[in-house]
Design a protein around this nucleic acid. Structure first.
Length: 264
DNA sequence: ACCCCTGTTCGGCG
DNA sequence: CCGCCGAACAGGGG
C-alpha cells in the first residue's frame, strides 16, 4: 500500500512518542521482517533509550534513538505504523512494539514483505543513502532524469519510474498517475522518449508528489477527484479527461492502467 | 476454491 | 559483465 506520501503519513504516527523513553521492546524474533538484522541486539540497544527523531525518504523510514542507535523501517506491501495505549497487547501481525510509559509504538505487517533494520553509529546508514534524490528536491532535476532514462533505455518507462534509486517513493499508483498526466504509454521504452515527454515526466512527477504530500501525507485524505487513482481499481474505470474506458495490462511486471486515447 | 495485490530481491537468460 | 524478466516471498480479501 504505502508509497511516498503514505509512508510519510505512517512515519508521523509515532510522533507522540518523540523524546520519550523506551521501557520495553517487544518483537517476534523469528519473523521475516528482521531479515539481515539481529533482533536480540535491537531489544538490547533500544531498551532504556529515548526516541529522538524520525525521517522519511522515498519508501524508507529512519528512526533515531539515543546513543547513536537507528531503526530503519520499510513497509513493504502491507506494513503500517500506529500508536496504541500503554496497556496494548500485541496481536498476530504486530511484529515490533516499542513500549513507552504512556503509549506503545507499533509496526505491523500481515504479509511480512516489510523490513526492520538496525544501525549503530554517528553517521546515517549506507542503505539510507542508496535511494534516489528526494523527488521534491532540486537534485531531482532534468539532468538527473536524462541520465537515468538513458541508463535504462531498454526498459519500459513504467518499470523505470518504479526504480527506487531514480524515483524514490514512486509506487504503482503514482507511476500510472504520472504517465497518464504526461500522456505517455507505460510500455514505451525509456530510451525512445522525446525531449518534450522527458520534461513532462519531470513536471508531472513533481506535481503528483507535491499534491500527494498535501493530502495523503497529512491526514490520509484522497487526492483530487479527477485523478487517475480513483479510476484505477474500478472494473469499468474511465479516463478522467474524456471518459473513455481505461486499458489494463501487466507492464514491467506490474498491473498497469492507462488511456489508449491520450497515451499513445 | 481460486485469483488478485500500492514491493523487493534473486536467479536465469539474452 | 549488464540489465531485464519472472518467480518467490505470505496472507487476506474479493
Amino acid at each position: 500500500m504505502p508509497e511516498l506520501a503514505e509512508v510519510d503519513f505512517f512515519r508521523r504516527q509515532w510522533d507522540p512518542g518523540l523524546g520519550q523513553k523506551i521501557i520495553e521492546v517487544h518483537l517476534h524474533r523469528r519473523k521475516r521482517v528482521f531479515r539481515g538484522s539481529n533482533p536480540q541486539m535491537i531489544v538490547q540497544r533500544l531498551t532504556g533509550g529515548r526516541f529522538v527523531r524520525s525521517y522519511a525518504r522515498g519508501k524508507q523510514m529512519l528512526f533515531a534513538f539515543s546513543g547513536h542507535n537507528w531503526i530503519g523501517i520499510h513497509l513493504g506491501m502491507t506494513g503500517e505504523l500506529r500508536t496504541e495505549p500503554a496497556t496494548f497487547r500485541p496481536a498476530k501481525h504486530d511484529h515490533f512494539v516499542l513500549r513507552q510509559s504512556r503509549r506503545a509504538l507499533v509496526f505491523s505487517d500481515a504479509r511480512l514483505f516489510g523490513r526492520v533494520r538496525y544501525h549503530k553509529g554517528k553517521n546515517l546508514p549506507d542503505w539510507w543513502l542508496a535511494s534516489g534524490p528526494e523527488l521534491l528536491s532540486d537534485q531531482f532535476d532534468q539532468r538527473f532524469l536524462e541520465v537515468f532514462l538513458d541508463r535504462h533505455a531498454r526498459a519500459p518507462i513504467k518499470a523505470v519510474i518504479l526504480m527506487q534509486n531514480g524515483f524514490a517513493g514512486v509506487g504503482n499508483w503514482m507511476a500510472d498517475e504520472i504517465l497518464w498526466r504526461s500522456k505517455i504509454n507505460p510500455a514505451q521504452l525509456a530510451g525512445k522518449l522525446r525531449a518534450k515527454e522527458r520534461r513532462e515526466i519531470l513536471d508531472q512527477t513533481k506535481f503528483v508528489a507535491r499534491e500527494a504530500m498535501r493530502t495523503l501525507a497529512k491526514d490520509f485524505s484522497d487526492p483530487p477527484e479527477d485523478w487517475l487513482i480513483h479510476q484505477k481499481w474500478k472494473a469499468n474505470g474511465i479516463c478522467p479527461r474524456h471518459g473513455i474506458k481505461l486499458s489494463h495490462a501487466i507492464v514491467g511486471g506490474r498491473s498497469t492502467v492507462w488511456c489508449s486515447r491520450c497515451q499513445k
